[in-house]
Structure formats: C-alpha cells, structure tokens
Write a protein that binds this DNA or RNA. Sequence first.
DNA 1: AGCCAATCTTGACAACGATCAGATAAGCAC
DNA 2: GTGCTTATCTGATCGTTGTCAAGATTGGCT
Lengths: 210, 210
Amino acid sequence: MKSARVAEPRPYHHGDLRRALVEAGRRLLEAENGSDISLRAVAREAGVSPAAPYHHFRDKSELLDALAMEGWGRLADQMRADLAPTEPGQDRLVALGIAYVRFSRENPAIYRVMFDCSQNHEAMPSKLREEGAYRLVRDALIESGLDPSDEMGLELASTAVWCAAHGVAEMVGFREFSPLKAHLGGEEAFLRALLSRLTLFTAERESPAG
Amino acid sequence: MKSARVAEPRPYHHGDLRRALVEAGRRLLEAENGSDISLRAVAREAGVSPAAPYHHFRDKSELLDALAMEGWGRLADQMRADLAPTEPGQDRLVALGIAYVRFSRENPAIYRVMFDCSQNHEAMPSKLREEGAYRLVRDALIESGLDPSDEMGLELASTAVWCAAHGVAEMVGFREFSPLKAHLGGEEAFLRALLSRLTLFTAERESPAG
DNA sequence: AGCCAATCTTGACAACGATCAGATAAGCAC
DNA sequence: GTGCTTATCTGATCGTTGTCAAGATTGGCT
C-alpha cells in the first residue's frame, strides 16, 4: 500500500498529523525568539493547509496546550537527568531548581507557552502533579527530611521552592538584575544559596511558627 | 480657545491624545480579563481612527510600554501607601512584597503587560530603578540593617526579595497550589513567612558564606 | 492674511484565527 | 472488485488585526 509514504507528491498527509503539528510547533518555538506562534505557520511548517489543525485541536489555544504539555514533559525529563548523579538530601532540591531555571533559559519560548497555558487553565493537569516536575520537588523534599504525612507542610514547602525557582527564572529574563546578569554561573550560585535557605525555611516551618 | 472640548461634534481629537490612549488602554486592560489588548480597540475606546496612535507610538509594543510604565508607577504608589503605616525594619520588606502580590492580583492584565514589556526590553528603564518599586525595596533593605556601602550585597538581597515576591505573585495565577489558593489571607501569611526568611538569608549572606 | 508642521482620517495591504462546504482517502460491508 | 460510511484534509471565505501611504484638518507662527 502506502509503503512509499515519502515518495508521494504530498497529496494528503495521513500520518499522525497531531504529533506532526506538535513537533512543527516545537521547531518554530525553538527557531523564533518570540513565543507568539501562529497557527497557520505551524500548519505551513507541517506541510498542511491552514484548516487542517482544526481536526485535531479545537482551538489555537489547544495546540498551545499540547505544546505546553510536551514542554512540561521535557522539563521533567531534564530534571530527572540532573537529579540522577546527586545523592539524596538538600542538594537534590537545589539541583531541581537549577534544572528548572536552566530549562527556562535554554527554551525561553516554550517555557513561556508552558507557563501561559497553565495560568489560563487555572489548574495544571493532574498528570503534572502526579508524575511531573511538581512531583519531583515533592519527593526531593521528603527525601531531605520533611514528614511525608504532613500534607500541608509538604504543599507549603513545594510551593516555596517552586516560587523561588520560578521567580529566579523570570528574573533572569530581566537583564537589569546584576547578580543574575553575568552568566549562568552567577545564577547558579545565587539560586543555590536562595534555595538552600528556603529548604531550611520549610523544614523549620513544620513546627509551629512564632 | 476650545473651551467647549466636550460639546464639539467629535471632528478631530486634538487633546493630549497620547495620554488619552494610555488611559483608554488602561480602561480596556481593567475591563477584559485577558491582557491581549488590540491597538485598534484602544483607538476605538479613545474615539480615534485605527491609525491615529501611530503618531504618538512607533509600534503597538510602544503603546504597551507606555501602559507598562504607568503600571509600574501605580505599583510604586501602592507600595508607598502600604509602607506608610509601618515602622522601619523587617516589616517594611514584608509589606512591600505583599503590596506587590496584591497588585498582581488586583490588576492581573496590567501586571502581565508590565512584566512582558520589561522582559522584551532586556532592561527596565532606569527610572524604575532610581525612583520606582525597585528603589523602595532597596531602601527598605538598608533600613532593615543591610550595609549601604555593600553594593553587591544590596543587589543580591533586592533580587532575592524581588524573586520571592514575583514567584509568589505568578504562582497565585496557578490555582493548583493549595497554600495560596484559599484566599488572600493564606497568601499573605505564606508570603510573610517566606519573605521573613529571605531577609534573614540576605542579612546573613553579607558575611562570607560557608 | 498666509504658510508650516503637527495631527488625524481614509483607504489599503498582508496575515491572522476561525468556519464552512466539498474533495479525498481509508476501512468495512458484500 | 463495488458501494457505503467515516475520518481527514483542502479551498474559499469572513471578520479582525498591525501597519503604512496619501490626503484632509488643525493650531501656531510670521
């Protein structure tokens, strides 16, 4: 049958277009500096008519959602990779934060899409919580000594870490902040110190705060 | 002169259109929930043709820049107001952070425009640094005991505070984080604890870190 | 008065998101 | 194979957007 899927004169697509579109979108996001991707450009990149995506995504925003999801997955992968060589304890938390900031730095457009999408949908998909980056932070916190049964304490601590990492990641976009602007080394040292303190903070916070 | 500016049959505008456009933009940003304002809509709101803004702003992005600047000004005003009733010391820093988060919560669209613009221009205008919100943080840090002559320490501390406040502000957009999602009281308490720790961190950081 | 430069409008362009009817392909009945 | 159904993709189209060039209008200056 269609064994010569490549040799055909591009009549209809008929492969896994959905995936093809997501990959095309990723390619465009990596190429351009701005994160304002155009639905039509994605279709063009995938070699499809401007209306084709609408059979796989209800909206442009749904395409962006898919791109964001792919980004979250890649972030989690990178976090896991950066986590592997570390030993359990506080260092893991710092490694996670640094991985987060580095991801936001190396993939700024995708990072922005990820964040904007999550913000519009007032709730990150549960998949992210259960097996994604958020879960990694939570696990690292438990490993570093937090009481696994203290649900509220865990939430508080994860949020604190997340806030710090995200705050630094966004501030790196600003070139104004001199502690961050020099080079990645500076950012790393800064984030390391900040995250260490915050972990301390969350650990102490378990007991009733004065 | 044209004392009857209101009674005229709206032939040509000829007032301070630049300001009128910024105000129209602010009105739209406050009305809509999304921050994707349309140049034409702003012109429409100001009662002007779609091309009129181009005599006052080179770009759409320059209009957004002006809107962002206005936002930064209002943020600084609110910070100053929230600062007034507090006494010098650590509380001031917390008050500043809380004011920041509250502003991002009460004016989400403007807040997003402010931040996006600052991020694209890789450097916030110097006005912001010298007399804006950033300066307020810096002053509060000095008041709370930091060495005014230690330029690097001040930069580091301000950045840390800024990162924390911004991180919390952005996370509030996520409804997923339970420590923040309940109500403003929760956010305030959380941010207060976080900022207190960070101030401690920055104060200690003055001495050589081990 | 007359002219200048600033200001605003009109009209147009390409690109965008979105929708629709219709062409095309694949799968399954027989 | 023929015929039908369904999923997929195209083409044309609509309303809107950012932007520009050319012309109309205005206030200020001499």
